[in-house]
Design a protein around this nucleic acid. Structure first.
Lengths: 107, 107
DNA sequence: ATTAGTCAGTTACTTTATGTAAGTAATTAT
DNA sequence: ATAATTACTTACATAAAGTAACTGACTAAT
């Protein structure tokens, strides 16, 4: 008996963003393409999970993976239009965090 | 060697929203106060996790818990100003999901 | 030419988070 | 007296994430 029925598109969108790390990965890619090892070291994510997340985001059409067959091979991850369309949301989160989030206190 | 240093407030904000269910709980409370059992049945969350999430959101000052000592006791959860300030972000997610998210396909 | 190092991952194993189902205490309805 | 509701908690099982070592292709240093 759910009085509030949630739009399935919204629910899916939320489920993508509420997986650990996905939001931060997208945020990191906003300024431009990045490599696996760069993402891995700039956020505290493990390679195992980063690998999973990038695959999922690629499946969702949010991230694209480009292989440059140089030597050594260079693989760059970047946002698609769908991914870039999340920029306003990220800006909102930045604003909210600046206005409301305190870091020191509560664990 | 992190070239992109992330603002700790932003990182904390993201860690709140990227916990499973927190976003949906906030979204459900946007229109007004709701009770435990209403939240529990309207989203597919288990009581165990809902209980955890509400406590965390209360600690973060995003949700407040009001006890009405009627008989039977009524307990209502609602958003604080900090929680209500997430409305624009939720609207952005609604917009994005309507423009970009397809539900049928990919698992 | 052997050793060490980087990149983009994968694999095996451990810890943490979440789900499931049942239980509790107070109350009310039949 | 029995069943049902609300707001949870507890015990146990499964799924997700973290840790660390490893692979394979290459490069640079000794």
């Amino acid at each position: 008996m759910d009085q509030t029925v949630i739009c399935p598109r919204f629910e899916k969108a939320m489920s993508i963003l509420s997986q650990r790390w996905t939001g931060l990965v997208i945020y990191q890619l906003l300024p431009g393409p990045k490599r696996f090892c760069t993402l891995e070291s700039s956020m505290g994510i493990s390679g195992r999970v980063l690998s999973d997340r990038l695959k999922e985001l690629e499946n969702q059409g949010i991230v694209k993976r480009d292989v440059y067959p140089e030597t050594p091979v260079r693989i760059e991850y970047s946002l698609t239009d769908k991914g870039l369309a999340l920029e306003p949301l990220m800006k909102e989160l930045e604003t909210w965090s600046q206005n409301w989030v305190k870091v020191e206190d509560n664990e």
